[in-house]
Design a protein around this nucleic acid. Sequence first.
DNA 1: TAACCAAATGAAACCCGTTACATTTTAACG
DNA 2: CGTTAAAATGTAACGGGTTTCATTTGGTTA
Lengths: 338, 338
Amino acid sequence: MSNIRQVATMAGVSVATVSRALQQPERVSPKTRTKVMLAVNEVGYKPNLMAVKFRSGKTHNLVALVPTVANVFFARVISGMQIAAAQRGYAILLANTLGDESIEANYAKMVQTSQADGLIQLRAHNPFDSSMNKPGELLPMVNVCEVMSDINCPVVTLDNRAAAKAMTLHLIEQGHSRIALIKGPQSSPLTRERLAGYRDALTDAGLTFDESLLYPGDFTLQSGHNAASKILASKNRPSAVFCENDETAIGAMQCFKQAGLSIPRDISIAGFDDISFSAFCDPPLTTIAQPAEEFGQSAVSLLIDLLEGKITKAPKVIMPFELIVRGSTGPAPKSTVA
Amino acid sequence: MSNIRQVATMAGVSVATVSRALQQPERVSPKTRTKVMLAVNEVGYKPNLMAVKFRSGKTHNLVALVPTVANVFFARVISGMQIAAAQRGYAILLANTLGDESIEANYAKMVQTSQADGLIQLRAHNPFDSSMNKPGELLPMVNVCEVMSDINCPVVTLDNRAAAKAMTLHLIEQGHSRIALIKGPQSSPLTRERLAGYRDALTDAGLTFDESLLYPGDFTLQSGHNAASKILASKNRPSAVFCENDETAIGAMQCFKQAGLSIPRDISIAGFDDISFSAFCDPPLTTIAQPAEEFGQSAVSLLIDLLEGKITKAPKVIMPFELIVRGSTGPAPKSTVA
DNA sequence: TAACCAAATGAAACCCGTTACATTTTAACG
DNA sequence: CGTTAAAATGTAACGGGTTTCATTTGGTTA
């Protein structure tokens, strides 16, 4: 690999001049500039940006801690992060953490060992060890989707509680009074927030909250399918099912259809996220649309602002959601309503 | 940030000794080792790995050029890459190229500017500029999924032609003789290979290849839906549809179902990839399973071997596929067969 | 105790840009 | 033409590790 000194020799100038000719062309005479450019081409010079990063102390790398890269919703967030980062000259170091805290910690160390400037966390968990805690100083981190309550950290999310309430309200308006909820992983704050919103809507509508209508899930297709089997087997079957994400809903939908139920005639199903597959179910899934790509973009933008000292307080960005009513929800069957 | 010199001062030894105490503990006396470790903790020393990378000329970063991060199949490949890379001490720099050659070239430059050691390409396209071509030397690149014919490059893929042939054969065995094919993007070699396999099977079975049964697509849900509409509108409608990927199949399936067709009674549908959603369709989708995660792992492993000089020839790794027969394919309707 | 070798340690170069500071060249003006 | 300021260019330090080579220390043996 050629270096700047070879270019300098070839051009018959000093390394400083070469550096200037490349970084601030107006600082060198046109004549010298030409000489340098010719020499650059001559020796096929490509700057060693590792040296630049080392010297400057800025890597322009951001670590993204993603529990599961293969999750469609997360994939959209990553896509947004990637695009925003590229626009501002940063690269994304992707970490597939599988929710494992030791893996998270390993990647977080990249920030502590100067391999990355900052970190984006999709889970509600602080991956840094205590040595990073500087009193009064923000960690070089931004949280997306899930909110960490115990730490002061910029965050991009949406009002999950309000969104879940809106969806539940939609179902109630359709005449449903027994609405099952298939939850997400217990560990996720999202699960609790969405449950709270579901409960809010019931309370507002004067309906009783029934623990037995809550089903465990973990945001996977399979867990939706499993929960649906249990719902089918329950006595007093609910007339609607609100799933805390779309994958769960799609898994549940398959189970109901294979059992011979017609959706939404026999049972209504609603999801959360609006992944691409949701519009292509049969029937298409009623869901809450989240601006996933914007989550990623906004998070990256916030993190870079933080790193570049443009913000010092930790903002909380609440993105808008949208209730998307499609064919999977409809009026409650008369028999159930009666 | 503390550095190694501060540790040296604190421990009362030279920087060389500190470096050795940390890298090759057996090379220093136990007494010194202890002194150094105490000093490390004392000043909260974290090595600047950017300096190490700069000095060594090895970044231990790999660039992954992915056309669309949000594609579920690619997401699985990325997941595999990520895991294999982590195991061998490498990090993945993710690039969402959108198939744009200038974006690809930008990320490829990261290799040329010493920001990454190598690159994994998911498209059949060489992103490097000509300055990288060293006669007789392999590029620091591995190809996954798609094969580049014009360049000598290690590759991990599967026999798409054979797989498409196997699927088509399956449909033929079910009694189908008019089988539509919804293709992928024209630009992708996958599209052509799968088409070739489809054709092979028809030829072997003595069926005529009918151009009018080929429908354009681009691997998206929407394109599958669009193609299905056209199929519905065609006179002499085919009794089976082979889609070049699962997303297309799922999009097509929705269209057929909404038109009142029963699958597979009225029409059979087959896909390719075996994404997670395929098992959770109604009916579940017959498809070709590809070991996507293994693609990623194998590619990373190959690339690292290449970078570390463990291989000098460009191997071609052909992964196995599996025909997964589910409910979306069945015997051809009698009326059509007759 | 002298001689000798191995183990332990230290000094300094090195990687490759950027940049502060010093020096030289150029241009302008009296 | 001489003076002076501005523009252009050069020199060398710097960043933080690793590593080579030299030196010192320690222990062993005659």
